[in-house]
Write a protein that binds this DNA or RNA. Sequence first.
DNA 1: CGATTCGATCGGCGAACATGATGGTTTGGG
DNA 2: CCCAAACCATCATGTTCGCCGATCGAATCG
Lengths: 300, 300
Amino acid sequence: MSDIELRHLVTMAAVTDEGSFGRAAARLGYTQSTVSQQIAALEKAVGGAVFDRPGGPKPVRITPLGAVVLAEGRDLLARAEAMADTIDRFKAGDGRVDIGTFQSVSNMILPLLVRRLRAEHPGCDIRLSEEETDQPRVGELDLMFFDGRVDGDVEHRKLLDDPYLLVARRGTFPAGPVRRERLDGAPMVAYPEVCDQPRIERALALGGVRPRIVFRTAGNDAVLSMVRAGLGSALLPRLAVHGGDVRSDESLRIHELRPSLPVREVFLLWQAGRTQSPLAARAIEIAVDVAAEIAGRPDS
Amino acid sequence: MSDIELRHLVTMAAVTDEGSFGRAAARLGYTQSTVSQQIAALEKAVGGAVFDRPGGPKPVRITPLGAVVLAEGRDLLARAEAMADTIDRFKAGDGRVDIGTFQSVSNMILPLLVRRLRAEHPGCDIRLSEEETDQPRVGELDLMFFDGRVDGDVEHRKLLDDPYLLVARRGTFPAGPVRRERLDGAPMVAYPEVCDQPRIERALALGGVRPRIVFRTAGNDAVLSMVRAGLGSALLPRLAVHGGDVRSDESLRIHELRPSLPVREVFLLWQAGRTQSPLAARAIEIAVDVAAEIAGRPDS
DNA sequence: CGATTCGATCGGCGAACATGATGGTTTGGG
DNA sequence: CCCAAACCATCATGTTCGCCGATCGAATCG
């Protein structure tokens, strides 16, 4: 019954435009016989004639039922064409991409990524979500920034190594590198124990160094404010101190740690075995480029 | 390329709902093999995978491209269903019908026809047009009322015979039938010389009777007003004097003519060889019924 | 490591499609 | 009045396409 096919509607529209089965066939690259059969099939599907065939050189004329079918059919065909357009645009890189980020991980990378992606695809829909869970829900995202290895069915791309630096109030330590032992029992401000944070604390503890964590917060600004206020020092990844006014802040001093902590690795990861959108694929490439530029930039 | 078929979209929607090719096949009455092939065909048409197949008991998962296709596809399917609904309603008698009427021909029939048609099909779109051309454009109408025969490729259905009556101001003629000769040179108000009017004037002239036409107007009311005002008498078809307040108007008198004029035949006609809508077909039936009732109604 | 679930693939069969030729119908001109 | 032209329907034919049944390979789970 409702076995209407788009091809038949195209043919019907052509017949209406041309006023003749034969000319419509010529336009569509069919034979007159084919057009005749297609219209017959369409008429069987809708349950009534859509054209009156006067016979002879008179042009065929649409019936009232045919007018209804044609009006709705043209609408349907327009929708189908719009669908094809949308698909083509999507394949060219338009569409939506959901990117997850965590804490201060990507405060340097993400703005550049978004800017370049939007420059390439002005119409694209970039959605960012920052969640504070340890084991993130990569399942609902296209891409996710993360520091540290992650298990599960996840593919990853390493973006950069992010070394830890010690940020202290001026006068807390003498200029230059600071030995790890100096942090044992020292008051410190730190991130919550998610992501890479447990790992560096374990690394310190392995050397018998146990700082006194006096405050934990996920906000970079809050950490730095507390350091400025003299609450304690902080071990922050370079990305977190690289930008902003940290280096020009006279009340703060940045020290290297000796021996240095194992670097934090920043990854871009996504669900394994899942087809990426062209936009997401492009985002990965751009993220890698951006990370390489940032990693190669001199420290000050 | 853009060879997307509605059937494939239905299958894709089912797969998305069920999370499995096999269950979708069971729901649709297909085989798993068929669903697999249909999805493959769809993927070839859109140029990319629409599902990720993890393999094993894991449910298939839609890809970003698939999400786009599905969103647009559901819209397309909804349109197609709406189209089927519209067609079904049309075949049940809904839709639009264009009816032409002329002068005072159908002042009695048309209101009843419209009322009954709208009672049967509340949603239908009845359009009336009254044109003052002699040879009407039946080509743009579904149905047309007309008095008198018409040539061309026109099918017709006779509705009723409409005899002419003489309407005069009280006191113009003695009560009862009036002989034709009395109208020779008499002042009369008449319709314009279109439709049936030339025929009755010829019929009078054939008997040597030539009224003095002092005013021609297409409006029934205008004719009667002029008769009341004493401008002259009028030969009007019975339909024109049947309704309204003519018979109860004490200032007017209705006479038969002896010998009577040949009756005016009222037809409903439409273009020959043209498929009509169910609504139009029903309108014809109702018009015939209505006309029969009116013709059978006693004169006063 | 088998049992299970799942999609892909192959061979085959029947329906649908496109073609070319033929026939019936109508129109308009000589 | 008949003939040529335009037009659509139909038929027979070859080919494609859709669907099915069966089988295979992959992944998961107990």
